[in-house]
Design a protein around this nucleic acid. Structure first.
Lengths: 188, 188
DNA sequence: TATTGTTATACTCTATAACTATA
DNA sequence: TATAGTTATAGAGTATAACAATA
């Protein structure tokens, strides 16, 4: 077992955290995620589709939304959900759908002026949400945390870009490699 | 803007990550969380309720499940969901419900022998999942990452133990403090 | 034949309300 | 009156299947 695994399991410094949870990676990740999402509500107020709508709007503002399915794949959104997301953004006057002359199946999503304004404002708010989430660390350690986080994510994305079955399989291989035949089964 | 916020927004080292996303704290957190959950499927195979069932089972094994609602609150599970979770664990022969003699409304949840075996095995698998998620970092940096993560979470939990509206309000206060009246509104 | 966008539908998960029994 | 546990029900969110238009 690595030092990190031992630390995650055992008795490191978990001040202020529930004893049996404070060193559980899954619980820690869940807490940060939950805290971030809860705080983000303040940044996406009035935006029907929540954070994901903001992602789509951002792609439109950046001129990177050449068709819906590309944007959907990028953010891990189901294509049928994407339709409703864009429907709502369009109904609220934040984006427009335009047929792509080069491929008449596709719809180019462009941001309206109102969409650009809302996006700029929401992004600014979101930076304060980031500060809120990271406020427990001094600035230098915030940078270090983000650097390590990016490295972790880069490796996860490299292993399984789609976060599909490959992530599960990779973990299963690691488990099987260390945990020979004796895996107890339900009802065994 | 803090250095960290600038780094999260701007041009730091995002090797191997989508350009406009690799420095987005929300996206990064989502990716780690998603990768962790996907990998965890291998560790909770055959456990109906997934990771949360493992949490509950762990409380039972540790003798910390004196009643259902206490366990539910601890893990942020709705009490009606908790009932079905314990139902399933009991049906699979992993835990038992026993009336508490001291408070006949409460049910003490105890792990069966099979439950203890399954828990031990699943926890061991879960440590390999942790290794899988953190594999992008050398051991020393894994420790550092976990240390920083714990600090971040400790602060979030201190601000809002229940991860309810308080997290949203705290972010909204920070936003309002920096972002005077000019918040553009939908349809404005 | 494959792909984009769309709709309708089914399914899963979660939250709400109401009830029983205890305190 | 309040709380632990339970059930039934409604709701949100998501995925599945089928379709039209285009490549």
């Amino acid at each position: 077992m690595s030092d990190a695994a031992a630390a995650a399991e055992g008795g490191a410094d978990c001040e202020g955290l529930p004893e049996s949870l404070g060193c559980d990676l899954g619980w820690l990740l869940g807490q940060v995620q939950y805290g971030y999402l809860a705080a983000s509500q303040a940044a996406v107020e009035g935006l029907g589709g929540g954070l994901r709508a903001l992602y789509v709007l951002g792609a439109a503002v950046g001129g990177e939304a050449r068709n819906q399915i590309e944007v959907a794949r990028r953010f891990g959104i189901d294509r049928t959900v994407m339709v409703r997301l864009v429907d709502e953004l369009e109904r609220d006057g934040l984006v427009q759908r335009q047929p792509d002359p080069a491929d008449r199946r596709a719809r180019i999503i462009t941001a309206t002026e109102a969409g650009e304004r809302l996006y700029a404002a929401a992004e600014q708010k979101r930076r304060f949400v980031d500060q809120h989430v990271l406020a427990g660390l001094p600035p230098a350690q915030q940078d270090e945390f983000l650097r390590l986080l990016r490295t972790v994510v880069a490796r996860l994305v490299a292993v399984d870009p789609t976060h599909g079955a490959a992530a599960c399989d990779a973990a299963r291989r690691e488990i099987d490699a260390h945990d020979p035949p004796a895996a107890p089964r339900l009802g065994g």
